[in-house]
Simulated scan of single mutants.
Amino acid sequence: MKRRQFVKGSAILGLTVASGVVLVKNSGMYHADSKRKVRQILSADRVNVGTLPVLRAFAGNHVDYVSPFVMFDEFGPVNLAAGSDPLRVDAHPHAGVTPTTYFLEGTGHHKDSLNYDFQIGKGDFMLFNSGRGAIHMEESGLELYNKGGFYHGFQIWLNTPAKYKFADPSTNVFRESDMANIETKKYSIKVVLGELGDAKSRIELQSPAFYYHIKMQADSRLDIPTDPTHNAFAYLVKGKLELEGGRGLQANQVVLYERGESQINLYAEEGAELLVLGGQPLNEPVISYGPFVMNSEEQIRQCIRNYQNGMMGNPAIVNG
């Protein structure tokens, strides 16, 4: 794969590598011949985006192992009192990338330069396909303002394939009925994107990708088949996991896997909640400058000119 490059001043930052904990006692791991090898374990960094506290697992780095995804943020969990000021990220542009938003708890308010203005909530999934450029504002939602409660979810950016970088932008919201579910006594899996066995999401994408929300009960083992030529990684939301090779994954860590094998092997001695994502690598140059993700510096300069000339919309109107 072609390595990513950075434009000077890019707001996409890297993060820390954490050593995996080796689990020996009470190991319940499968040892399948086709298991994927762990490449690296990373710990998420705490940052603020606007007034929103975020755990950032990666941002513009490790593209060889996370493409077609390019940035991963967990927002919250934050317990908001009724009537408190919304957590907010003011109007800002995107181009060449598709931020996805998935809510575990609470509600959000989205407004953009495409004339969308709506509330989204628990279980909902949004694709903000910025294409040639669009502006949006994000904040905690009206129901949280009225009643209070937890605000928790994920914003994960999907990189846009080169042929769609300057396509028309679009906004789409999907409900749980658009996704598929797998339920057993030992685990549940929501197939947000892609497919797993007979379970298939109805959400269409510009390139192949998968996104699974998994909950594992205590003393549960799970083998997840993947295309060996695709990237795969997992982020632990809660609990602890044993991985291939006896390594351990803690909450707010992400494990990147090598390509070449199929099965992702997981064991949860005490239960766990996680996301497993990946897809077909785009194998294209990645040039990033803040919210713009393109294939060349000239494209980045074009995005900046388009934004400055008002071609992506008016931030004041979106903030209003």
Rank of each mutant, 00 (worst) to 15 (best):
D45H: 08
T226E: 04
H109E: 10
L241G: 02
I317S: 15
D168G: 09
A209K: 05
I224T: 02
L87N: 08
L266A: 04
K200I: 01
V255M: 11
Q308L: 15
N181P: 00
N306R: 13
L104R: 14
G108P: 05
L275Y: 01
M294N: 05
E143A: 11
V54T: 00
R3L: 09
V173R: 10
N159D: 14
T51V: 04
F128Q: 11
S207R: 09
F118Y: 11
G123M: 03
N48R: 12
Y145C: 01
R259T: 07
S130F: 08
S130M: 08
F6W: 12
I189C: 01
K186A: 06
I300K: 05
I317C: 12
V22E: 13
K200T: 02
L241E: 04
R46C: 00
N146V: 02
M137E: 14
K147W: 08
Q155D: 03
D227A: 09
G20I: 00
L144K: 04
L55M: 13
I264V: 10
V38L: 15
F58D: 09
F154Y: 15
P285I: 02
A234V: 10
D45I: 03
A272C: 01
G106C: 06
S170F: 15
I189Q: 03
I304L: 11
I156M: 09
Y151F: 15
D85V: 07
S296T: 04
R56L: 05
I214S: 05
G123Y: 04
D223Y: 07
K163L: 12
C303F: 08
E74M: 09
N295I: 00
D73Q: 03
A316S: 14
Q302F: 04
S10I: 05
F150T: 01
V276H: 03
L104A: 06
D223P: 06
L266G: 04
V191N: 06
V22F: 13
K147N: 14
T98Y: 09
P225R: 08
Q253T: 04
G279K: 04
N231Q: 13
D112F: 10
N231M: 09
L55E: 14
A209Y: 05
K186C: 00
E204V: 00
I135D: 03
K147R: 14
V89K: 12
E183M: 05
I189G: 01
H31A: 08
V54K: 07
R36D: 10
G60T: 00
G313L: 11
Y235K: 09
S27F: 07
N172H: 11
Q40S: 10
